[in-house]
Design a binder for these strands. Structure first.
Length: 256
DNA sequence: ATGCCTATGCGACATAGA
């Protein structure tokens, strides 16, 4: 079973690239982030034609997550508990062939310090709580998405260049470690323990041609699913396409 | 020390991204 995550940065602008990538790599499940549209405007027909069912948690203009699957998926949740005021569409969860799959768009948090950074940390605390409940269920789970967290200095082209960024702050990294230490496995680091494994390159300043990237898109596996991990990878070449997203797809293959 | 680029909205620039 191939499960991928892809921050597409706008389904409106990215549909052709998304369809190309789906046709080429044929994931069984694709978790999307930053669809930047409401449910009604999501191109369900085009994706059905490509062989995918759609679960959509959309929002006008910003954010928005979705889960595409070849076989029908059962939605098991949208949004995180713990803040009724939070209306951002950043979390959707489904069960596919016995595997619980979450598509996560964690808040960016810039500028920091400030209210956006506070929101990021509160959101991470809510995710931590939900993730603990998922682990307690002892089901196979993958938490896939754009975490907006650069876990270590190895995951960024230059630590000093990003020093003031919300993605590398000690509080951000500590919150991510707390999540990981619950017992999750970072799929990419399971396959490639060290060295650059970037998943994002800024549109600005020639970041892609200069390979000034970040590793911020992650697939976290529950212990039971980590035991079934066959391979994991990053579809770097997608970044070179026409009108590419600033993120590229990251994927795992797990034994079914 | 700032902008660099891109996508979206009911727009003619602002906001958000990371």
């Amino acid at each position: 079973m191939r499960i991928a995550t892809f921050n597409i940065n706008g389904i409106g602008a990215r549909l052709p690239r998304l369809l190309d990538w789906l046709a080429e790599t044929q994931p069984d499940v694709a978790c999307l982030q930053e669809i930047k549209t409401q449910d009604e405007s999501f191109p369900v027909a085009a994706l059905n034609d490509a062989g995918y069912h759609c679960l959509i948690h959309g929002q006008k203009g910003f954010n928005g997550v979705a889960i595409l699957s070849k076989v029908p998926a059962t939605e098991t949740g949208r949004g995180l508990r713990g803040d009724p005021e939070d209306l951002h569409a950043r979390y959707i969860e489904a069960e596919v062939e016995g595997v619980t799959i979450a598509s996560i768009y964690l808040p960016n948090g810039n500028p920091q310090p400030g209210p956006k950074f506070d929101y990021k940390l509160r959101w991470m605390a809510r995710l931590e709580e939900h993730a603990a409940a998922l682990l307690a269920s002892e089901k196979p789970v993958v938490l896939a998405g754009d975490y907006n967290v650069i876990p270590t200095a190895e995951d960024v082209f230059s630590e000093p260049a990003m020093g003031n960024d919300a993605l590398v702050q000690p509080e951000t990294r500590a919150a991510f470690r707390r999540l990981m230490f619950q017992g999750w496995t970072d799929a990419i680091r399971a396959v490639q323990p060290s060295g650059p494994a970037y998943t994002f390159w800024d549109y600005q300043a020639g970041a892609w041609p200069r390979d000034l990237g970040l590793r911020i898109d992650h697939l976290l596996l529950s212990p039971g699913l980590a035991d079934r991990l066959i391979d994991a990878g990053i579809d770097r070449t997608v970044r070179a396409g026409e009108r590419a997203s600033d993120h590229v797809p990251v994927w795992i293959v797990v034994r079914t």
